[in-house]
Amino acid sequence: MHHRSLDPQLLFLLFVNAAVVVAAMVLTGPEFTSAYNFQSMASQVPELGLLALGVMLAMISGNGGIDLSGIALANLAGIVGYQIAVATVDPSVAPLSYILVFSCGALLIGVIGGAINGALIGYAGVTSIIATLGTQLFFTGVAVGLTGGSAQMLGYIPMFDSFGNVPVMGIPLTFALFIIIALAVAAMLKFTKFGTHLFLMGSNAKAAYFAGIPVRSVLFRTFFLSGILASVAGIVIAARTSSVKWDYGTSYVLAAILIAVMAGVRPQGGYGRVVCVVLSASALQLLSSLFNFMALSNFFRDFAWGVLLLMFLAFSRFDYRTWLPMRRPS
């Protein structure tokens, strides 16, 4: 038990987080480590982090599982939530109701979108990469159709904007929400039957089937959950930017996969730790902000993400133990 909690990947990610902060202090000056910046960075993590959790679940399910439709569904959820809310509630009169209606609408789309993915992959047996590529286009198409391609402005709703951007007791609320959701996902993976079945199925789908695991149902529920996580991401995006648009965050598809792979989630399936995904998301955010603070060209950032992804795929899991000298036989 003890050695598993402190596995090499986790230590590595802690090290990376710390190293980037130290590098930033050296290379860019005091502003990076200011409270404002940490809050600013923390508020940028949740939307991508939630998508990365969804990708993690898909990867754990094995057989090359992945979810490419996350951000498209998030945007669609925001758009539909907005359209329902704006048609039924006046935000200047009842802001809380407006937010609640918006959120419920978004979550509903997450449920539907997740169910579509789950049905295609779990019951129709479509490979997840093809299925989610298709649903990504479908969700995007619907979003464009509903909005004509233009952004939907929610306008300045103080309550919502504060939720998205104003820290409470030093912690951005969206970040707190992200952590709570991450904890819930971790608990589900560790303590529920579904979680155990998911890991086993990802580890060896044939043996799982032989052992009586309802493989199709587990797959359905996995992608269903990923869809819901995506819709929460959509709500967070709307809170942060006060607008929803069909093409927001197109770079998130790759970034979410990068976070999952960097977190040691095995693309072949069967393994992944939530705490590592959270640390990986924060590491990426720190790096991203560091690059911006250093005024590095954004192309370098894209290049860096590409190199990191290839590196981590090549190593699959970083094990510092191979670097230490061999212990003598006892």
Binding site: A187, T192, T196, H197, F199, S203, N204, Y271
Partner: peptide, 28 residues
Amino acid sequence: EGLFLEKPIRDNIIMSVIDRLRGRFGLV
């Protein structure tokens, strides 16, 4: 066809009877 090789011995043994091992909140 049978084992989940990189998973612990415990998971390999209990996996078919998880339902019988529930504690509070229906969690394992």
